[in-house]
């Protein structure tokens, strides 16, 4: 039986390794907060350039290692997941080009309200379906919560979109916790203690930067980064804090996917396919998984090249397409709980 990637690099299943994991998280978080607070735009550019592609690949590798080889009774769940992931991404990509044909800002409110509503109802349906399969749980709360969110969405359509921007990076921390629960449960207390540093650092960033001068930079990339952090809607606080906070969370997210989850969650070295259920079916499935992973590496290299050629356009296209992976995390996470 092949050793896990973590064991291969010397990370053994000992209790003190939980402290090592927590310490790694703390170091990543502190370094991210310092750099993000000091030079948010430059750090955002650098971190997206370096880690956007690799973190997607690591995520795909991890998901492949956890997906069942056959859908079986879960075919309905996986079908709805696939339809939602592709459909919502396509709709999200289409909205800007549709809006460019009009000048009505009100239209944007309605369109993003519809998209956000579809997104919430998709998740609610997935949770409901998940609650009906083993291990079952009472999913009756999902519909009231979903409709509360819908009410909030239609009162302020863009607030939900901005909330997703800030909440999505936390998904990685939650997934790591679920992985620890499965593979290294005695590390969880140390991990939970380490997690406290994230809200603490956010508070420190807010304390230091909430009334800082507006970020300089008139170029399209700087403006895109500021708008991504929501400075056009969250106007009561300095955009220096917003960009710093968003960049900090994104970097922690990248750190978890590129460093921590591979060390803990891969049941083998990344290039070993034996622990990927789909690949174990053999034949065309094994070849398909291999091609997918190799194609993913190619995409990472192409992404780096495109960033070097035209960072602004590549960044915009990446964050539209990357919605795919954000959406894919959701049904995957639901299967882990």
């Amino acid at each position: 039986m092949s050793s896990s990637f973590g064991e291969a690099v010397g990370l053994h299943a000992k209790r003190d390794s939980g402290a090592l994991l927590a310490a790694s998280l703390v170091v990543i978080a502190i370094a991210s907060a310092l750099l993000a607070g000091w030079m948010p735009i430059a750090f955002s550019i650098a971190t997206v350039f370096l880690f956007a592609g690799p973190h997607n690949w690591c995520e795909a590798r991890y998901i492949l290692g956890r997906l069942p080889a056959r859908a079986g009774k879960l075919w309905g769940f996986f079908t709805l997941s696939f339809v939602g992931i592709v459909g919502l991404t396509a709709a999200f990509a289409y909205i800007p080009s549709y809006l460019q044909n009009t000048s009505e800002v009100l239209e944007a409110d309605t369109l993003y309200g519809v998209w956000n509503s579809a997104f919430v109802l998709w998740i609610a349906t997935l949770i409901w379906m998940r609650s009906r399969t083993n291990p079952r749980f009472d999913g009756g709360w999902v519909w009231p919560v979903a409709f509360f969110l819908l009410a909030g969405i239609w009162l302020h359509p863009f607030a939900f979109s901005i909330a997703i921007v800030y909440l999505h990076p936390l998904m990685a921390l939650w997934l790591l916790d679920r992985e620890l629960r499965r593979s290294h449960p005695d590390w969880r207390p140390a991990y939970h203690a380490g997690l406290l540093v994230v809200p603490l650092l956010l508070i420190v960033l807010f304390w230091q930067l909430h009334d800082a001068p507006v970020l300089p930079g008139d170029d399209p990339v700087s403006l895109a980064i500021q708008q991504h952090a929501g400075d056009w809607i969250l106007t009561s606080v300095s955009n220096h804090f917003l960009v710093a906070a968003h960049t900090f969370l994104e970097t922690v997210h990248y750190g978890v996917w590129v460093i921590l989850i591979p060390l803990i969650g891969y049941r083998s070295k990344p290039w070993e396919l034996n622990t990927i259920p789909a690949a174990r079916r053999g034949g065309a499935w094994r070849r398909g998984v291999m091609i997918l992973l190799l194609f993913g590496l190619l995409i990472v290299a192409v992404l780096w090249a495109c960033f070097l050629m035209d960072y602004g356009t590549t960044r915009y296209i990446y964050f539209v397409v990357a919605l795919l992976h954000v959406l894919a995390e959701i049904p995957f996470f639901l299967r882990m709980i």
């Binding site: 519909w143 009231p144 919560v145 979903a146 509360f148 819908l150 009410a151 239609w154």
Partner: peptide
């Protein structure tokens, strides 16, 4: 106005189902 009406219906559904 339409957004407000949709929000109202959503609130009612949330509270009712909850």
């Amino acid at each position: 106005r339409n957004h407000l009406m949709i929000a109202g219906v959503a609130f009612t559904l949330a509270l009712g189902l909850g």
